[in-house]
Amino acid sequence: MHVPDGFLSLPASLATGVVAAAGVGLALRGARRELDERTSPLAGLVAAFVFAAQMLNFPVAAGTSGHLLGGALAAVLVGPWTATLCLTVVLAVQALLFADGGVTALGTNIVLMGLVGVWVGWGAFVAVRRVLPQRPASAAPAASVGGLLSVPAAAAVFALLFGVAGTVPVPLDVVVGAMVGVHVLIGLGEAVITGLVVSAVVAVRPDLVYGARPLLQRPAVPSERVPA
């Protein structure tokens, strides 16, 4: 699912690289608020989790299967800044050690999955969370909507980039329509799985779900952590 080398023109690849670098720079500051000094080990383990989760197959039908993209899920579980960092690291490792996604397209992939996927998912989650009853169980349906929108949003941005700065002249409406159409279906799967995973975590440790913390009446587990 990662954009390889050569899909966008050289200037466009460099431009998305600059946008990605700026976004990651902001995320490095923001993540400190979400995870304090535990950032590196926790974000590293969450990145390992995202990496593993992207390789798990969910059977669809007739032997076909899909997998999670995980942007919205990571945003709800650990907060959007940390999620951006985790997705960035996962994408960089995939490009450099697994040849998945081109190195010149790394900026594009970070923009699509680490920025658009995470922040559209998070934005939709926050919007839905606001209108649902204020209890931890509401996090699951809200995360589901986040997953549903994050996938076609990333696909739409890719199609727009390709239409504007791709290497082939294409009618914008056709490509955007086709990409969004296909990815709405993928987004439905993402929505179901994201919601189910969040509901499973909320049932056990609601205090660990970043997006569910405002929904807790009081801290479910009193903080035992002594400042180091």
């Binding site: 989790f49 799985i193 189910l196 660990l208």
Partner: peptide
């Protein structure tokens, strides 16, 4: 999905 949730908890 419950297994994925458990995997997240263990990783975290």
């Amino acid at each position: 999905s419950r297994s994925v949730g458990a995997l997240f908890l263990r990783a975290y």
